[in-house]
Computed example of a mutant assay.
Amino acid sequence: MSNDPDWKAPEGSWASSAARRRNMQAIRSRDTKPERLVRRLVHAHGLRYRVAARPLPGLRRTADIVFRPAKVAVFIDGCYWHGCPDHYVSPRTNPAYWSDKVARNVARDRDTDQQLRDAGWLVLRFWEHMPAEETAAEIVRLVSERRKGKSDEGPLT
């Protein structure tokens, strides 16, 4: 994309203008403020994890926080991009495209959850608006429980 003021979005593009395109490209897909805060709190409880990792090698999707030995995948979902029932508001510009995009994201989330569960993973999803302290406490509790359950089966790897 050039800085040309006469720039126009390609036919079928999601960008309604050059400014909108720059704005949308600046939105982070990882290391968001809610993710960083939750990770810091979980780390302070002594848990170690992978960040933005694929829980399953053959699944081309990443979880925000992955506890591989315990088989726990954590997602901190953004209210807009994942269709939060409390906070999602359809945009005024190009609402059909964006609402369809969010619906596809939600469908992909459900498919990801099912594939991970089928492989024996515990899937944890939290909204970005949830208090980080509560989210972190729940993650610590569930990962710890899962690890204790595995300790009866032998050492963790």
Rank of each mutant, 00 (worst) to 15 (best):
E138N: 09
H82E: 04
V123N: 00
R108F: 07
P55R: 10
A73N: 14
N3P: 09
D4G: 14
M24K: 12
T32I: 08
R117F: 07
A73W: 06
V72Y: 01
G154C: 09
I27S: 10
D113H: 02
L142A: 04
F126L: 01
K33M: 09
K148G: 09
A53K: 11
N105D: 08
S2V: 06
V51D: 11
D64G: 10
D111N: 07
Y80N: 04
I76S: 03
M130L: 09
R48I: 05
C79P: 03
P55M: 09
I27Y: 13
Q25N: 13
L124A: 02
A103H: 08
Y49G: 02
R28H: 15
V106L: 08
A19W: 05
Y97V: 03
E128H: 01
P95I: 04
P69E: 12
G12M: 12
F75N: 13
A73K: 11
D77K: 02
P55L: 04
P34L: 08
G12C: 09
A26H: 15
D4I: 11
L56G: 10
N23H: 15
T135M: 12
A73P: 13
A63V: 06
Q25E: 14
E128S: 01
D31Q: 13
A136D: 03
R20V: 13
H87Y: 08
S99T: 11
S16R: 06
L37V: 15
R40Y: 06
A15N: 13
T62M: 15
R50Y: 12
L142P: 02
R39Y: 02
R28Y: 09
L124V: 00
R22Y: 03
F126I: 01
M130E: 12
S151V: 07
K101C: 05
R110H: 08
R22W: 02
E11D: 14
G83V: 02
P91T: 10
D109P: 08
V89E: 10
W7N: 11
G149K: 06
V106F: 05
L122A: 01
E153F: 13
S29W: 04
